[in-house]
């Protein structure tokens, strides 16, 4: 019996000792430069921004962009993949240094994380299946239908705050999905009538699945796409912004858009 207690106390002491060794302090840019590696979080299930190819390698607009940024900063990029709605928390808790995952700027997100300058401006799109008989002349028209969005996206926030919370759309008509392709599938089999998402992936999904069409695009929930950083890391943000400016001037970002967005 005494031995069981001794072991228990030992384990407790060990875990408390480990607890004392917390994360390091100091500017993240310095830490990252010292390590030579930058941990970048992404959710590689979102073609054409980040997805995996048939060899299991990460590829996509965001992937290529970040690899180039890393190169110019003299850092190796260590990709950390996780479901999209875990990314913000991961940045906050310091599990990853930054995240690039087709993030649109939003005030809510800004409360807990910081953003770089925009590297791309995206549009929102409403996608429907063949045989859809309704009309969407303006974004608010979507309130009349059952709509699917990806959880944690700016589209999710927009439709919740603008339509559901204002009583313009019943909450039961809004379905949230972990991934965009899930929403697209439900759209195809009629479980939802409309899908609200980023325009570029929507077009890609529509093409791949067939039987779907993007019927409206505009900028109301989305807009600028930015890289997400932990709150207060201004030095790191500046370093990345400098590179983004270079890449825009050189036309590198435009060439990525051509590579991944025109099909």
């Amino acid at each position: 019996m005494k031995i069981v207690w001794k072991v228990f106390v030992l384990l407790l002491a060990a875990s408390l000792l480990l607890a004392a060794c917390g994360p390091q302090s100091g500017s993240r840019l310095d830490a990252v430069k010292q390590a030579g590696v930058i941990k970048v979080g992404t959710s590689a299930d979102y073609p054409p921004f980040e997805y995996i190819d048939e060899n299991g390698n990460k590829t996509g607009f965001d992937i290529d962009l970040m690899e180039e940024i890393g190169k110019r900063l003299g850092l190796k990029v260590e990709w950390v993949d996780m479901p999209f709605d875990s990314l913000i928390a991961a940045v906050q808790e310091g599990k990853i240094d930054i995240s690039i995952s087709a993030f649109n700027y939003s005030e809510d997100r800004d409360k807990v994380v910081d953003f770089t300058n925009a590297y791309y401006t995206s549009e929102d799109a409403f996608t429907v299946a063949d045989g859809f008989t309704g009309t969407i002349a303006k974004p608010e028209d979507a309130a009349a239908y059952t709509v699917g969005v990806q959880t944690g996206t700016t589209q999710d926030a927009w439709i919740t705050e603008t339509l559901v919370d204002q009583g313009l759309m019943p909450a039961a008509n809004l379905l949230r999905y972990d991934r965009a392709d899930q929403a697209a599938l439900d759209l195809k089999n009629g479980r939802i009538q409309v899908m609200l998402s980023d325009a570029v992936p929507a077009q890609s999904l529509a093409k791949k699945l067939g039987g779907l069409a993007v019927i409206y695009t505009g900028v109301f929930s989305s807009g600028p796409m930015n890289i997400v950083l932990p709150e207060g890391e201004t030095e790191l943000a500046e370093a990345i912004n400098k590179i983004l400016a270079e890449l825009t001037t050189e036309g590198y970002i435009d060439s990525l858009a051509v590579k991944y967005f025109s099909e």
């Binding site: 299930d45 995996i52 993949d81 479901p83 875990s86 991961a90 392709d181």
Partner: peptide
Amino acid sequence: VYALGVPEVLRRAQQLSATTQQP
């Protein structure tokens, strides 16, 4: 553990499904 980003079987299946549209 897929939810934490560990690249085990389920997470890979999700990524595959997103890329190939063959759930």
